[in-house]
């Protein structure tokens, strides 16, 4: 059986195609202003990678913030459901899923059987999501992909007091003017995001194994901050930002 999962994220759209449970194609596109067109493009990319045609796909499930606008979709599932399902498949021992995307962070606690037990979403707070690292990398004039490795060079702990991404940027500017080393500021930024995600994790009562998914999981500096804050080792899948789409494709196959 061939199924597809499409994750209509706020910044990127991910498509995963499964054949009998195995990933045979995947693709990612920036959502931009025309998310439906971007989704079609991502779909086309995944089909090409899989070497199949649209008509070969039997079922498609959409997830993500823009899932109502997804093309080729029979039914949809929330990010909570698709994340939990995807992680369950990859890591049966996972009990806590942390998903940090561009605009939102969420924590999900699952039972031993993999059922969703509790979840918490951050709301109206860019300071707990990837958009924050992007604005901070601009403020520091450091490419986003270098922000993580840069912060790993720091041993300093500089608290950031601002509760909001906009004010935090002002705080970063102040640190820059105070000639604070860039690596220390980068670490402070990651610690600040981590503290917001930790508060979500504590809200749901996290327990190991903890799996981090979403695009921000590529950021090694953030992962380090999160591990220090949670005092536990975190598992990162190979393609952390595709896990939601992967979960949606599994759900499509299961017909739930």
């Amino acid at each position: 059986m061939i199924t597809a999962g499409i994750d209509m994220g706020s910044k990127t759209i991910k498509v995963v195609i499964l054949k009998d449970g195995e990933i045979i194609g995947k693709s990612i596109e920036l959502a931009g202003f025309e998310s439906r067109e971007a989704a079609e493009k991502a779909f086309a990319g995944a089909l090409e990678a899989a070497g199949i045609a649209q008509g070969d796909i039997e079922k498609t499930t959409a997830t993500g913030a823009g899932r109502k606008n997804a093309p080729y979709t029979e039914h949809e599932v929330t990010e909570v459901g698709s994340d939990a399902r995807g992680v369950r498949e990859l890591y049966p021992n996972a009990r806590t899923v942390l998903d940090v995307g561009a605009e939102e962070g969420r924590a999900i606690r699952t039972t031993d059987e993999g059922k969703v037990l509790d979840f918490a979403l951050n709301e109206k707070c860019a300071a707990g999501a990837g958009a924050f690292t992007e604005s901070m990398s601009r403020a520091l004039e450091v490419p986003i992909e270098e922000l993580g490795p840069l912060s790993l060079q720091s041993d300093a702990s500089i608290p950031m007091n601002a509760q909001c991404a906009v004010f935090a940027e002002s705080e970063v500017v102040t640190l820059v003017h105070a000639k604070t080393p860039k690596q220390d500021i980068a670490r402070a930024v990651h610690d600040a995001i981590a503290s917001r995600i930790v508060s979500l994790a504590r809200k749901v009562g996290f327990e190991p194994d903890v799996v981090l998914i979403g695009g921000v999981a590529y950021n090694t500096g953030f992962v380090d901050s999160l591990e220090r804050a949670l005092e536990t080792k975190i598992i990162i899948p190979e393609d952390p930002e595709f896990v939601g789409a992967y979960g949606a494709a599994i759900i499509a196959a299961e017909g739930l």
């Binding site: 459901g81 993999g114 059922k115 509790d118 979840f119 739930l256």
Partner: peptide, 20 residues
Amino acid sequence: EARERLPIAGTDKGNNVVGS
């Protein structure tokens, strides 16, 4: 979803899902 559609590994639908 968690109560009705996604009893992922189990079979009962009455799991005490919470959210915030």
